[in-house]
Amino acid sequence: MSGAIALEGRTLTVAYGGRRVLDGLEVAITAGGVTALCGPNGCGKSTLLRALAGLQPIQAGSVRIDGRALGTLRRRERARALALLAQANEVPAGLTVFELAAYGRHAHRPLIGGLSTTDRTAILDALSATGLREHAARDVTALSGGERQRAWIAMALAQQCRVLLLDEPTTWLDVRHQVELVLALKALNRERGITIVCVLHDLNQAAALADRVLLMQAGRILHDGPPDQVLTPDNLAEVYGVEMWRLDHPESAAPLCVPAFAPVRHRSHEFRS
């Protein structure tokens, strides 16, 4: 791993009811990259993401963004630095796509007064980047699942943050909308340099989207690196406890992970690729 560090967790310890979910975890997120957090349910992926966002109380350790302790930043400074999109977001009825995106401007606006020309420009730019400008006047609740996810991302873009954290952004979406969202996130990273960290269950989405995968188990990062180095049959068997076949995408050569639908009984044989 090389390059400037955008977001860093040092010796992070998080516990629920006396049980440690993260125990002295160390992680450094490279600026301008896309990092996927992967692993089985309950391994601490979402807890780590929330801790990095400053929304999860930690018992020990610290979080730093651009070298500054996150806890020392004022709310507006923090909002300009990073945004977290949770798994499920409730939208009040009657809220338009433009109005939802406008919430992202709170960190830049005075406490009193309407939207400025700068605000409106940022909102329309965010809607254009997510392919929703023509839907600005639509009720958010009338959007499809994929469009609604992009509307939330537009809100984060209007916030003009440097780091975007997403918790299972493709959950509940059909295949088409999953693909569209992954492609939209890749474009945002490539064209705008936004640092993206996302929790993903789908390993093939992680391989397609991320340039770095953190494979977690029981609150620890067991494997860390590019998808083609991390998403190997041995690593996946170790973390998930099932045999996986590793194939190569016919065009991109990105790894494709296919479960063998059998529990791991022994580890001595080689997997075919």
Rank of each mutant, 00 (worst) to 15 (best):
A6W: 02
A6M: 07
L7P: 04
L7E: 11
R10E: 14
L12K: 05
L12V: 07
G17S: 12
R19T: 12
R20H: 11
R20T: 08
E26C: 01
V27T: 08
V27G: 02
A28G: 10
A28D: 09
I29P: 04
A31G: 09
G32M: 05
G32I: 03
A36T: 08
G39W: 00
G42L: 01
G44S: 03
S46D: 06
T47E: 04
L48D: 05
L52F: 11
G54A: 14
Q56S: 07
I58F: 07
Q59H: 12
Q59G: 15
A60S: 13
A60L: 03
G61V: 06
S62V: 03
R64A: 13
R64C: 08
I65W: 08
D66L: 06
A69I: 06
G71C: 06
R74T: 05
R75Q: 12
R76D: 15
E77H: 04
R78F: 09
R80T: 04
A81S: 15
A83H: 03
L84S: 13
L85I: 15
A86M: 11
Q87K: 10
Q87C: 11
A88Y: 10
N89W: 00
V91S: 10
A101L: 11
A102P: 10
A102T: 14
A102I: 09
Y103T: 13
Y103R: 15
R105W: 13
H106P: 00
H106A: 15
A107Q: 07
A107E: 11
A107L: 10
A107V: 02
G114Y: 00
G114I: 00
L115C: 00
S116D: 01
D119Y: 06
T121W: 00
A122H: 04
L124D: 14
L124S: 07
L127E: 07
L127R: 08
T130L: 08
G131N: 12
R133D: 14
R133S: 14
E134I: 01
E134Y: 06
A136F: 11
A136Q: 14
A137W: 03
D139Y: 10
D139I: 07
V140Y: 03
T141M: 08
